[in-house]
């Protein structure tokens, strides 16, 4: 069973003669290994470029941080009230932002839908504005609104509102474009005006889609609202960054733990709600 006795030399040369294409060639080896070599060389170079060596010089502060994260002191002075108000504020920001975004998208969505807004220039204009709202990250909006209206949850609500307006309007307008034409024609045939057609022909069909998408965004906004505070836009993130700057690492660890529990709880809850909603639909 030894590898040496696999095939004899003349058998090998016979196979080489009859099936030359199955053996390795330098070119095949290059083609096989080149992507890996390039990736590896790139990784090594980029880590060097990003100064990977910094990990070696990080010792003192890291131990200080780790020590404080694990050892919690003076727990009676931690102002739990502010922490939990911060968490409530995060939820409130997500709720208000999603609500405003959905309400705005209700109008803008119709303006961007091909079958409702026949004027090309208006439709395209609205769509490009929406692209910009979507293209800029929510955190950037947060920073911009902090600059415009000052620190606090108002900036956070506006940031969520603006980025949701961009995304939800697009989704809503797609839902409106995929609508059943016959029902709309039925309402038009009764002699209803433009608004009447929208109210009785479109809204009943698209409202369930709108609501389910908004609920989904409520979930994802709750998650992103936790970090909006890092740029000063209110909520729990602001408490994290304040106490982090004040070197209160044990409190930061506690707050982060709370945030993680919140995130996992929201995940779990929304999964439950979705399952429940699907179950309802199946009846």
């Amino acid at each position: 069973m030894t590898a040496a006795a696999l095939v004899s030399a003349d058998q090998l040369s016979a196979v080489r003669a009859s099936h030359p294409d199955i053996f390795g060639t330098p070119w095949k080896a290059v083609k096989k290994w080149a992507p890996w070599v390039i990736a590896l060389v790139y990784l090594v170079w980029s880590l060097w470029f990003f100064e990977i060596g910094r990990f070696l010089n990080a010792s003192d502060r890291v131990w200080d941080l780790l020590y404080n994260v694990v050892v919690w002191r003076d727990m009676d002075t931690w102002q739990y009230g502010t922490i939990y108000i911060g968490i409530a504020q995060t939820l409130a920001m997500a709720f208000l932002g999603t609500l405003l975004g959905s309400m705005g998208a209700l109008f803008v969505g119709f303006l961007a839908a091909r079958n409702v807004m026949p004027v090309w220039i208006v439709r395209q204009g609205v769509r490009r504005v929406l692209d910009v709202l979507r293209g800029v990250d929510q955190l950037v909006w947060g920073l911009v609104f902090v600059r415009a209206v000052g620190l606090g949850p108002l900036a956070g609500v506006l940031a969520i509102f603006v980025s949701d307006l961009g995304t939800l309007s697009k989704l809503y307008s797609e839902a409106i474009e995929n609508i059943d034409r016959k029902q709309v024609e039925g309402v038009t045939a009764t002699g209803a005006g433009k608004l009447g057609v929208i109210r009785y022909g479109y809204i009943p069909q698209v409202l369930p889609v709108f609501i389910s998408q908004s609920l989904y965004f409520l979930e994802s906004n709750t998650r992103s609202a936790t970090i909006l505070g890092i740029v000063g836009a209110g909520g729990i993130g602001m408490i994290i960054i304040e106490r982090f700057r004040a070197s209160l690492y044990d409190q930061v660890a506690f707050v982060v733990l709370n945030v993680l529990v919140l995130i996992f709880a929201i995940d779990w809850l929304s999964k439950r709600v979705r399952l429940w909603a699907i179950g309802e639909n199946e009846h």
Binding site: A3, L6, V7, Q11, L12, V15, R16, S18, H19, D21, I22, F23, G24
Partner: peptide, 21 residues
Amino acid sequence: AEERALAIQALDRLGMAHTAL
């Protein structure tokens, strides 16, 4: 190369060497 040759021999016994690639 030996492993490749062995595989071809095995395939050849079953009349499948032409499908090797």
